[in-house]
Simulated assay, not measured.
Amino acid sequence: MTVIYLDESGELGFANGSSKFFVIATLATNNAKRLKNRVRKAKKKILDAGWPIEEEIKGTSLFGCQRRYDLSEEFKKNRDLHIENFLKAVLFDEIKIHYSIVRKSCIKDHIRQAEYGIAYNFFTGKLLTRSYNHFEGSIDLIVDQRNKETHHKLPFDGYIKTQIIGECGHSERFSISHMESHDVVGLQAVDFISWSIFRNYEHNDDRFFKMIQPYVGCCDNWYAEK
């Protein structure tokens, strides 16, 4: 069985000041228990160092913590080390990362102008079908239920199931769950993955991206200039 955790970074809007890139990332594993145990240990170290216990640990908030007054200077000085240690816990031999990188200026007009939600469904479906050969057996896809892009008017679940079953010939069990990230360690893990990828492309900062590169299986590249 393969468990796939899915997250995104950036946004698909085109307002002034919005991101140049959009990232969809999946963290796939056939050993979700080991991932959970490793990440829990990494989280405990960050909490013991002073992170507020009631606040979810996310890549973007951890990286930007130097602007906070409720954390010690020692914690803020070691922010990169905390991120690196978290990523080391996520990255082990029984996981594989697949991601889609979209330069938004290259999105075709018919996708750009389509009803809200179509672009997200399209890019997610392409990523999952192109990385399908890396999955084994039944599939559990877990998505952060706060993801604003999975719009109720354009059902995400039905589209994705159609792509996996119709395009890939998947015949075993395939479930999709929308869950709160603070309840699911795997969603917290893929948050750091998608953030690291986004930071590489959006901000030309590859410090954390270099750590995950050896674990990348499929890169679905929508990056070419028009």
Rank of each mutant, 00 (worst) to 15 (best):
M1C: 06
T2W: 07
T2H: 11
I4H: 02
Y5D: 01
F14Y: 15
K20T: 14
N30F: 11
L35D: 02
R38T: 04
R38Q: 13
K44M: 13
L47S: 04
W51Y: 07
W51D: 00
E55P: 00
K58R: 14
G59R: 11
L62K: 08
F63Y: 15
G64K: 15
G64I: 02
C65S: 15
L71I: 00
N78P: 00
E84L: 08
E84V: 09
N85W: 04
L87K: 05
L87G: 03
V90F: 06
F92Y: 15
D93M: 07
I97E: 02
R103N: 12
S105E: 15
S105G: 07
H110F: 14
H110I: 08
R112P: 01
R112N: 02
Q113A: 10
I118H: 12
A119P: 00
N121S: 08
F123K: 08
L128G: 04
T129F: 02
S131N: 07
E136P: 00
I142F: 06
V143T: 11
K153H: 12
L154D: 01
F156M: 05
K161L: 11
T162H: 14
G166D: 04
R173I: 10
S181M: 05
L187R: 09
V190N: 01
W195T: 03
N204Q: 14
D206H: 13
K210E: 11
I212R: 08
